[in-house]
Design a protein around this nucleic acid. Structure first.
Lengths: 161, 161
DNA sequence: CTAGGAGTTCGAGCGCGCTCGAACGCAAGC
DNA sequence: GCTTGCGTTCGAGCGCGCTCGAACTCCTAG
């Protein structure tokens, strides 16, 4: 089973599945750029498919700053929402909270930190690539096992190897 | 950016990275089939790149049964090692402990449970496929962001969106 | 005036998958 | 005999990323 073989298998898999929510979510995230008016916590939560609890959590660990309205309620302006979209996207792709904190501290420091941020992104990209490769192998292994079961439905020769 | 475009990008990524350890680990796992003599806990731990602590943990949550030698030390026979290889592979591919427990309970019940186990595997395969798709999108998003930074190194137009 | 609902802060708790430490057992080597 | 080293059991702790509940405030509708 050559590596290229695995690749094509993985690709085929990707084509087969029409990601029920993931794709949709990302698309939704992309479209938020149009957001203008400040939003309430529940609106943002609904938009990003997360709980208000989590939004408050993100704020308290310093990932995002959020203004308050007259009565002390959070008011998410476009910038905050955009940042949360970015955060969500990165979290979805498996970036660790501590890395996001790091990244955001840099972002808050200004444009001088762009190169450093770029480094973080490049590193993250490599991480994703590694994950992709591992998952592809896992897929192959799982499909092999499935074939073992599906191939001959007789008694298993060796009790779960 | 069409989906096929993303696909090819992901594929290219897969080709670029030569997984420093993941591939190697899997290969090693595959080759263990030759194992014959009972092994000590540290030998198995070294083989599978995990700690003795973790091996004991796997045993105590019922994933695997391990015999003891005369002085009460664990003695991993070929069957146990094979099972651990399988477990490791599945864990690496992200199967949850509770699912593995379920699967192993079934395996211990005998061949009647093969269809049910097959279902679990099929489900897991779909999970991996979904993850692959999500990661591919994440990769695209990250590369887009990188391009944003790499493209023009001037002041960021909108402070981390 | 009162009840409801949405928001607030704060600190604690949870599920996962380990990870560790303390206290002990056993066999080999000096 | 005694240390060294590898193993044992048991229960507790940890890092992550939330998740929840209690107690409170504020605004609105009836």
């Amino acid at each position: 089973m050559a590596t290229d073989d695995l690749m094509s298998k993985a690709l085929a898999a990707l084509d087969e599945v029409d990601g029920p929510m993931s794709v949709e979510v990302i698309h939704r995230l992309v479209d938020v750029s149009a957001a203008t008016a400040p939003m309430t916590i529940t609106e943002v939560a609904d938009l990003l498919d997360m709980s208000p609890h989590t939004l408050r959590y993100y704020e308290r660990i310093g990932l995002v700053e959020v203004a308050r309205d007259a009565s002390g309620h959070r008011s998410y302006d476009a910038k905050a929402v955009r940042r949360l979209v970015f955060l969500t996207r990165m979290r979805l792709s498996g970036m660790a909270m501590r890395d996001l904190q790091h990244y955001m501290r840099l972002a808050d420091k200004g444009d001088d930190t762009v190169p450093e941020r770029l480094d973080l992104l490049l590193e993250h990209r490599d991480t994703i690539r590694r994950q992709l490769k591992e998952l592809t192998l896992s897929l192959a292994a799982t499909e092999y096992k499935i074939a073992t079961y599906g191939g001959h439905t007789g008694p298993s020769s060796d009790e779960e190897a």
